[in-house]
Write a protein that binds this DNA or RNA. Structure first.
Lengths: 160, 160
DNA sequence: GGCAATTAGATGCATATACATCTAATCATG
DNA sequence: CATGATTAGATGTATATGCATCTAATTGCC
């Protein structure tokens, strides 16, 4: 019994050390910060009817338009099946058009509509506000460095 | 018509500058890196039957146990309604137990079960593997700095 | 003590995320 | 040129995420 107790205490000490180690989880760090910041963007972009991810998705499509889902998914480091569903509300809202592919009939054409462009232009000042608030929260200088590190993470992990 | 064309070109130039600006979106940077890294952790933790977020949630509960949902949600920078649902699969799997609160009957008690502790211990080597892979992808030195910046984001934005 | 304000939790709803899997189209190779 | 392998997209399933809202419990204030 005495030995059993000692063993439990030793086991507990190891377990607690383990939990301390787990606190440094990179995945948690990224997800947690992502949640906190996403709330800022979602809230700021609400008058434009967009969530943060939708704004970025729209901007990426605008950059590449006309393009195809695979290219967009790569740019977003997003699974192609996730993109498939994330396009839905934007297509339903008429901001993006999906057309059958011409050359390769597997690849659909993804294009920004006039309404999509107008929405982006309307959303831009709201986005700038969220961007500024985030920058101020983390510290002006640090945000640029953080952004570089984040991009390095995506490149280093192979993106998708 | 000539003037109209010129105006469109000027408008396009502004629009393109706008899109360039939007590429620096902090929200996109965080979400994109979060997606890429989450895939690594989800895949590595699969033999333990956990996703990355579930591992962290379990570890946070283990750290605080016995605790309550509000405390856990704050630690995760997660909305309390999101936590409510994220606890479900862990409770269903018997890793976490939810009991009615004693002192304040609004606050439920969240405790790590023996099975939950065993699962955490089993998952730990898998988690270390994912953590190591991520560190190598971004560069050893940079990961510590990145993690500090991410925590500063959470603190600076008020967490939840 | 009694009632308004607050807090904790759950749920309806909509979107976000990815894996496994299915179909259609294209490619590669014999 | 025929056929097996690959690629693109969609869908089933499960989890993740947060807002609006509802109920129950507690707190604050008179």
């Amino acid at each position: 019994m005495h030995i059993h107790l000692i063993m439990n205490e030793a086991s507990d000490t190891r377990f607690k050390a383990m939990l301390r180690e787990a606190r440094g989880c990179s995945c948690l760090g990224l997800r947690r910060a992502g949640r906190a910041v996403s709330r800022i963007y979602d809230s700021a972009l609400q008058p434009a009817g967009l969530k943060g991810t939708q704004f970025s998705l729209l901007a990426v499509v605008a950059n590449l338009s006309p393009t195809n889902p695979v290219e967009v998914a790569e740019m977003m480091a997003m699974d192609r099946t996730t993109l498939s569903r994330n396009l839905r509300p934007l297509v339903a809202a008429g901001l993006i058009a999906l057309e059958p592919g011409e050359e390769d009939r597997r690849r659909r054409s993804v294009v920004l509509t006039a309404k999509g462009r107008a929405t982006l232009e309307k959303a831009m000042p709201l986005w700038r506000q969220a961007q500024r608030r985030t920058e101020e929260a983390v510290g002006k200088g640090r945000m640029g460095r953080l952004r570089e590190d984040l991009d390095r993470v995506v490149r280093g992990t192979g993106g998708s």
